[in-house]
């Protein structure tokens, strides 16, 4: 699975960085920095939660 940010929707609320610190950090403006968009099976559940909780619905898990 691959993590994808829809930048036209992302409001930089920071929930994803809290829920998925393994893959996502925040830049100085609060927008997510995706360290690597490759989501290992181990992190899929946490990634799914981050996707689910994004207030702007800007985070997506894509099948490759």
């Amino acid at each position: 699975m691959r993590l994808h940010v829809d930048w036209t929707a992302c409001d930089g609320r920071g929930l994803c960085a809290e829920l998925l610190p393994e893959l996502i950090t925040e830049d100085e403006w609060g927008y997510p920095v995706v360290r690597t968009d490759e989501v290992s099976p181990r992190l899929e559940k946490a990634a799914g939660r981050a996707v689910d909780r994004c207030p702007a619905l800007a985070l997506h898990l894509l099948r490759r």
């Binding site: 930048w7 036209t8 992302c10 409001d11 930089g12 830049d27 403006w29 609060g30 927008y31």
Partner: peptide
């Protein structure tokens, strides 16, 4: 003006 990092960066 749509994308946060672009707009700020």
């Amino acid at each position: 003006g749509q994308c946060g990092p672009c707009v700020n960066g």
